[in-house]
Design a binder for these strands. Structure first.
Lengths: 183, 183
DNA sequence: TAGGGATGTCAACAAGTGTTGACGACTCCT
DNA sequence: AGGAGTCGTCAACACTTGTTGACATCCCTA
């Protein structure tokens, strides 16, 4: 007996998936409600509007487990989460792609920037704690976002078509350069 | 006596600037024509429509000078073009941002992907010519796009607020790791 | 001077957008 | 049984979107 999914949850799920792939303004309310099999008016009722639904999906992002690891296992964990193939259920690249696909948006850009700044860059720098913590954190994020972008969005051979093992080696090389940076 | 700018050129200029910052579907025809000080109907007349104007700006991108350099100067040149501050006239990060801002678009995504694949990744791999050319090319692009993304779009401290000299050192470290990658 | 092609202006169109309010069906508590 | 609260459905709204066609204006040529 599968437990019934509330329509609020249906909307969150469909919204997350569509916002992730196509970006905020390329997704209409009717696209979401159509995918969720729900009436279009319910977005405004439950979330106060399209914007509210987007912010809900943003607030709903799973925590980045790299931030929960100790300093030693940080690199391995960061690499691992990006070397995995895409899994729609418990995907860790997903949150990054959602952020990636919506920075450009004139409406949501500020919220995305704030989220990345406060939720990713700042805690990462604090965890590193070294002298060049801020630089290294920014560089690591650049590497991770860049790899995700090249793989998922640009789909360029040499990164998009690699096995998890091969990817691990490639990402490790870049991430290590970021984390060991000396001016 | 400044030579008069044709309205076709005005449209190309305004279109490029807006598409670059906000992405294809976040820019309306009236936005562009408003910025250019031109009637909205002229986009359809000159370019056959909004889509035609976008493709024109894409075809109008300046060539990436890294592809014209020899193998030795490649790293230095790639780093240099990304360490410069933003210059609206002869900016080399600009083309990358235009691509970056529009991969997600459901209409233009395919064209962008094809452009990056054929215009950047493939010639770059050919120029490298080594055994892991394809991997290294993809990794270099990941690094460069990632840095541009973190700087311009996410505006994260540690990369966004650095002088050209500091940036050069940081990007070089990452690009070297990409180009010297051994499996 | 007449004609024609390019160039710009204006109003309007059909389609799609997010959102709202009225209405009905349902469940739960007293 | 009655009433209240929740949930979903439907039609309609005001607005923006890209595009089109008719008209006016200019400039060059025959």
């Amino acid at each position: 007996m599968t437990k019934p999914i509330s329509t609020k949850e249906k909307l969150l799920q469909a919204g997350r998936e569509l916002f992730w792939t196509r970006g905020y303004s390329n997704v209409s309310v009717r696209d979401i409600t159509g995918a969720a099999g729900v009436d279009a008016a319910l977005v405004s009722r439950y979330f106060g509007g399209k914007q509210g639904l987007f912010e809900a999906t943003l607030a709903d992002l799973p925590p980045w487990d790299v931030l929960a690891s100790d300093r030693e296992g940080l690199l391995a964990k960061a690499v691992e989460s990006f070397a995995q193939p895409y899994d729609p259920q418990t995907d860790l690249v997903n949150p990054f792609m959602l952020l990636l696909a919506n920075v450009i948006d004139p409406v949501m850009g500020d919220k995305i920037r704030a989220f990345v700044q406060q939720g990713l860059a700042a805690p990462l720098a604090e965890k590193l704690g070294s002298a060049q913590a801020q630089e290294r954190a920014a560089m690591l994020l650049a590497v991770l976002f860049g790899v995700a972008l090249i793989r998922k969005n640009f789909q360029i051979q040499g990164l998009a078509d690699k096995s998890p093992e091969a990817l691990r080696a490639q990402i490790t090389a870049l991430a290590r350069a970021a984390l060991e940076f000396e001016p």
